[in-house]
Design a protein around this nucleic acid. Structure first.
Lengths: 242, 242
DNA sequence: CGGGCTTTTGACGCCGCTCAAAGATAGTGG
DNA sequence: CCACTATCTTTGAGCGGCGTCAAAAGCCCG
């Protein structure tokens, strides 16, 4: 299941150096983290952690995408978080988590043993502060997501999802650029509170309208960004006064 | 309905002393907070803060219930947080919030000016730690809520909501006890991602089945707790091994 | 080329939304 | 104390979006 450890890059050259839990650390603090860390790799589809399992490690996502999801007895599943590079897994003061963590793409984690990391958090306010910022950012994201799940139509959900991918890939405003679609239709459905059939139908509707194109199942292009943003149901200019 | 507090009580006798942002503070820290705080009262229905408004204060809920909600251009509204006594409004490092805060019942807040409070957070790790715990608890609640919004049926949503009220009122296991229903049907609908008609129909269905009773519109009794928990769709015993 | 996946497409039905109107309830002023 | 009004709630009828079920089509990798 788990692929052999790869060798950690040096923190100072880490791609998530300026955004992860270590973002505010000075040289000394970084050296401490450096000595504690190990890398772990997972393949797309692997389960990283099971709900209720005791947390041995906490970790930052270095590369790839991980999903947090909850499942009901009868199998209904809802994703409750999407972790991208620099996002953090685990929380100080809790021995376990109440959702599953799975790799949706190939995934590299920068892991710290939980106990020593928690001790470190107590002593280095820079880490604690950053951890708090990350938690609050996730809370903001969760709230946007709740609006989507509770009130948006299938079409709006899909458009919002695609637009988020575009925005997060930092391709703002660019059109016609081939982009990564890091999940299967089924995973997208579990992300958006839909069925995979509805996801497929809505994506193809946007394709038929000339808004999106799909070079293959794992990539897409935005042909008409304005139409896409229109379809999200969100305020067009993000609340700016026009 | 309770008579809201108008003049601040002493921190040492505060009803939320052991759960709010000040929970971990020692005597000295408490004295500092005591000197900074002012109370504010709102009536049911009042708006406490508008989305985008600059935050002058941060605050703890002392008494009553406040709701965080997001509204789309066409009027669709979704609650994204429910604040009960000891919950915190505002976040360090942000000048504004991106949802409305309204009082769903009469409400008493313990307010701190934002700038001095933020300075305090920097210096007193006890406050920062507690703030973090509160944020992470809210994140957990938001994730449960996302499962509800994305995957549960109307009946399950209603049952989950009522069961949550029962649990939070610390009436575990007791049946037939008159309890407060702190929101209108319309607010419940916005909480659960439903329409008010569906809320009404589902509540009356549970009444017809003898699961609930409604002495008046602002109160309810649980007549059959087992049936209620059955209807939530959640694992009956909370994941315990039986 | 064949087997196992993911995705697409179609037919159909139901849950929850919409629209509409009547029924409670509470608050207000005469 | 009783209209009168505003607000909240209930109830009904009808419809449509999305889920369900089913099957075919496309894609990947041996």
């Amino acid at each position: 299941m788990q692929i052999p450890l790869t060798t950690p890059v040096r923190c100072s050259q880490c791609p998530i150096r300026h955004r992860a839990v270590c973002a505010k650390c000075d040289e000394d603090e970084l050296a401490l983290l450096e000595s504690m860390k190990t890398y772990r790799r997972f393949e797309a589809g692997d389960t990283v952690l099971w709900r209720g399992e005791e947390l041995e490690y906490v970790a930052s996502v270095v590369e790839g995408v991980a999903a947090l999801s909850k499942t009901m007895e009868d199998g209904r599943t809802q994703m409750v978080g999407l972790l991208l590079p620099s996002d953090f897994i685990g929380r100080p003061g809790r021995r376990e988590i109440e959702f599953d963590v799975t790799a949706t793409t190939d995934l590299t984690l920068c892991c710290f043993k939980r106990a020593p990391f928690e001790a470190l958090v107590e002593e280095t306010p820079h880490v604690a502060q950053r951890l708090m910022e990350l938690a609050l950012d996730e809370l903001d994201a969760a709230r946007d997501w709740m609006l989507l799940l509770g009130r948006k139509t299938a079409r709006e959900k899909i458009a919002t999802f695609i637009e988020m991918l575009v925005r997060r890939a930092h391709f703002d405003g660019t059109q016609g650029i081939r982009q990564d679609l890091p999940m299967t239709r089924d995973q997208i459905a579990n992300y958006l509170g839909l069925t995979l059939e509805t996801v497929s139908r809505q994506l193809n509707a946007l394709k038929k309208e000339g808004v999106l194109a799909f070079p293959d199942r794992r990539h897409f292009e935005v042909l008409d960004l304005a139409a896409l943003q229109d379809a999200t149901g969100d305020d067009a200019d993000g609340g700016m006064i026009s």
